[in-house]
Amino acid sequence: MTGEHPALALRGLAKRFDDKIAVAGVDLDVPAGSFYGLLGPNGAGKTTTLSMAVGLLRPNAGSAWVLGHDVWANPVEAKRLFGVMPDGVRLFDRLNGAELLAYHGLLRGMDPAVVDQRAAELLDVLALADAGRTLVVDYSAGMKKKIGLACALLHGPRLLVLDEPFEAVDPVSAALIRDILQRYVAGGGTVVFSSHVMEVVQRLCSHVAILAGGTIKRVGTLEEVRGARSLEEVFVEVVGGRTATGQELSWLSR
């Protein structure tokens, strides 16, 4: 039944904060089984878009559909199907890693025995088992990302929505996260993640959308968007940046 539905479909999502338009009508179709990269400079509206897509932030207009379920009209069904790792949101970080996973698992209505087994496995694979009783608040940035990912994966969702999963993560952890995500997609899952690291997106994604100024500028498969050039060239051209000419900041050299 869900085969014909896209894993995530956004229709005209828009959000305005006071006098500033953060997202001005985003349409997006994420095919099931794809590895989707949402690219954009800082402040492009990536986090706002993803927050609206998963029910964390009420949009001013538009709708979001997860595997055919409207996130805002029928949240219970939709929320069951996806796992989220938000960025800039704290975890319940006065718990230790195992406690946090148990909390998330039970909150999702999972069987305690399954929670125990999966939590142990996830902690082991993500190299967090050594942390033992250390509270998540005392974890390093990379460890926090990993435990966040574990929380999102625990209930075996069909769709993973990750906001900046590679931000502030060291190369070793990043490689681990990449492997896990690739396995997840190979197993039939769908991943949507935001990033501004071209190298990672180029290596992982089957599809790419470039978001700037609250609207989608380019969208399609990686090949369609990139063409013959590198993704970075396309990105800088679309977003429109400037480079220092050398005239300014002369006081920096002494």
């Binding site: 230790n96 406690e99 996973l101 148990a102 909390y103 939590a119 033992g132 009783r133």
Partner: peptide, 16 residues
């Protein structure tokens, strides 16, 4: 300093 005690007893749910 981290208050880590290496030994962990029981499953995740029991710890919570």
């Amino acid at each position: 300093p981290a208050r880590g005690k290496p030994q962990v007893s029981g499953g995740a749910v029991a710890q919570l």
